[in-house]
Write a protein that binds this DNA or RNA. Structure first.
Length: 382
DNA sequence: ATAGGGTTAG
């Protein structure tokens, strides 16, 4: 459009910014922000809302807050975007504080506000606070919808209260969705409850028979329990039904280019002199600060050496090494992954943030880990 | 035109 001399309107930018957010293209998002500043016209509310959302989804929560604070007019979307931004970035205290501020400013929260808060509580392990919130929201005239129940079930299950979670699902005033059963299945995986997983999956397959993630989760439940025959059965079932899983991949943006990595990586990159040098430096340094590969996360029936090779080749590590090589010392490393990070990569990232003194911001399917000097913003709660 | 719910083998 710009090449054709067409120019652009606020509507143009309002539609492009969410795309930057979705793929974590912070560099591109900042360029658009630059266009807004350059135009000297004040951005309107939807435009600034989508600018905030872009920053939040790129893990740049401080920039998001800056835009929010400078907005002269805010609507409910602005407040919700800020709260949800804090929530997905693991800053639940800030989310709660903003909610209080909203209330004292007499802004009426809506269903979306509570989805943001509840899912934040769930991901930070604030179970009792979340439960209270679930009741409190009804005082604000918000009736719990399926989405709110999904948060509640996830919150209970994730903190190990599987029975309580199941009881909620069974007493739901509406038909449970795939995400409700899926969340419960995930909790069974976290706590190694094979028999409940089997009950749950029966219901889940009625609703989402073609969702590859459900098969993988079930397979992982069995693998964790060492039930390799069952693992095989699940994989054969997938094969028979023609269900394929997208491979895990990670990417980073450097200037205008997006660099993508899959597990194992390209041999060109892994054999390059720079890769080998950084890799061996990191191996020594991370070992010194106590990092030991945890091969428990490799849910395949293979030997220990292969397992170590496998975890160390996970796509987010390759992306991290590439970023360390190709960005200036001290610059934050920003990685996005299409799946959740595994436990071992999580501890590796902590160690790397410490030995390189770099901030590492890792976004998985839809939330963030901020690694700094050996610790993570998620406080290791999954 | 902007904000919201679970998860994932290579």
């Amino acid at each position: 459009m710009q090449g054709e001399g067409m120019g652009f309107s606020w509507v143009t930018l309002t539609t492009v910014l969410p795309v930057c957010g979705q793929v974590t293209a912070l560099h591109s998002g900042k360029e658009i922000h630059g266009q807004i500043v350059k135009s000297k016209k004040r951005g309107d509310v939807p435009l600034l809302n989508s600018l905030m959302d872009m920053y939040a989804k790129c893990g740049a929560i401080d920039y998001c807050r800056k835009v929010f604070d400078r907005m002269q007019n805010k609507d409910i979307t602005s407040w919700n975007t800020m709260i949800s931004g804090y929530s997905i970035n693991g800053q639940i205290e800030e989310a709660m504080a903003l909610f209080d501020e909203m209330i004292s400013n007499r802004i009426r929260p809506d269903g979306i506000t509570f989805v943001a808060l509840l899912s934040g509580c769930s991901h930070s392990g604030l179970t009792s606070k979340g439960k209270r919130l679930f009741h409190v929201m009804q005082n604000y005239g918000v009736k719990p919808s399926l989405e709110h129940y999904a948060c509640l079930v996830d919150m209970l299950g994730r903190s190990g209260k599987l029975d309580e979670a199941l009881a909620v699902v069974e007493s739901l005033p509406m038909k449970p969705s795939g995400s409700i059963w899926g969340s419960l299945l995930n909790s069974c995986r976290l706590y190694g409850n094979v028999s409940l997983a089997e009950t749950v999956v029966e219901r889940l397959f009625e609703i989402e028979p073609n969702n590859p993630g459900n098969y993988v989760m079930l397979s992982n439940v069995y693998a964790n329990a060492g039930m390799w025959e069952e693992v095989k059965r699940v994989r054969e079932m997938m094969g028979m039904r023609g269900i394929k899983k997208d491979a895990g991949c990670s990417w980073i943006q450097i200037k205008h280019r997006i660099h993508t990595f899959v597990a194992g990586g390209s041999t060109d990159f892994r054999n390059s002199a720079e890769f080998c040098r950084i890799w061996s430096e990191l191996s020594d340094a991370t070992k010194k600060v106590g990092y030991v590969p945890d091969t428990e996360v490799v849910l395949h029936d293979i030997n220990a050496e292969m397992k170590t090779m496998w975890v160390c080749g996970h796509s987010e590590r390759l992306a991290a090494v590439y970023a360390l090589i190709n960005t200036g010392d001290g610059m934050p490393v920003r990685i996005t992954k299409n799946l959740r990070v595994c436990v071992d990569c999580h501890s590796w990232m902590k160690a790397v943030s410490r030995v390189t003194r770099r901030l590492i911001v890792l976004r998985d399917t839809n939330r963030f880990h901020h690694f700094e000097n050996g610790t993570c913003s998620c406080k290791d709660y999954w």
